[in-house]
Amino acid sequence: MINRRTLISLVTAATVLGSTGIAFAADKPYIAFICKGFQHQFWQAVKSGTEQAAKKFNVDVTFEGPDGEGAVDRQLDMLSAALAKHPAAIAIAAIDSQATVPLLQRAKDAGIKVIAFDSGVASDIPLTTASTDNLASAALAADKMAEKIGGEGKIAIVSFDQTSQTGIERRDGFVNQIKAKYPKIKIVDIQYGGGDHLQSAEITKTMLLAHPDLKGIFGTNEGAAIGVAIGKKEAHSNIVVIGYDSGAEQIADVKDGTIAGAITQNPVGIGFESVKAAVDAVNGKSLPKHIDTGFYWYDKTNIDDPKIAADLYN
């Protein structure tokens, strides 16, 4: 019995020691990326952007994020572990715009260059912020919605969360644009599905029952948009769905018309530009305060356009 257990401990120890091989060469500059959530396809696309840039600029990059979006304290743990590795630069997509500030101050004091990506930090420590203009992109979604439903009628929003900067800005960008430009359009309901496909689908079906004359729904991220599309299909409805982000399922829905079209950010570009900015910062170059990584409207007609296709991820 003891032997078996000793064996287990030895195997564990060997595994741990074996992983030493993963430790990287020390001569290249090292940049630590901390994102908001690890599993989402969006972050994987950002990650692939960082990997492309790492090759191009000959730097080492690691990319991490809490398992579930929203885990502010887990992100702080990741940030402090990254600091202990003495990176040349740290890039952060802060879940909470204030919570990371003390640790980022520590990084700055230690001479580590700090870059923000995707979401801003409420401080002037980050040398730059590489992100999508969520307000402007959601406003574009509102324009497209108005166009598709003919400028009047009832619409609704299925959002992914009500707490993150991104969630708030996408909702408000859309709502404000509708209020300002389309007085005949009424937003009758805003619900939050946690970015979960099924939950967003259920919300959609309930909305369709509650408002039989609903003309359109805006799904504010990948999970929300796919969920709205599922709800639309299950309820055999023909409302206009406007999506956000991409992913294999959403692309298929746009192609077959279930989703009228969607806004895509440029996640690969966010990753790439952040690495580039970090490298510039390490080399002592000055950076603009904000790097707009861009956004595009895509629908059936331009989905295969190479310029758009490059920003869509599966």
Binding site: S9, T12, V16, L17, T20, A23, S80, L83, A84, K85
Partner: peptide, 22 residues
């Protein structure tokens, strides 16, 4: 203990005061 020894052998950054506090 085994984990801590393993990690400190694997990386000099592990067993620093700041990281232990982390």
């Amino acid at each position: 203990l085994v984990l801590m020894i393993g990690f400190s052998l694997a990386s000099p950054n592990f067993l620093q005061t700041a990281n232990v506090i982390n």
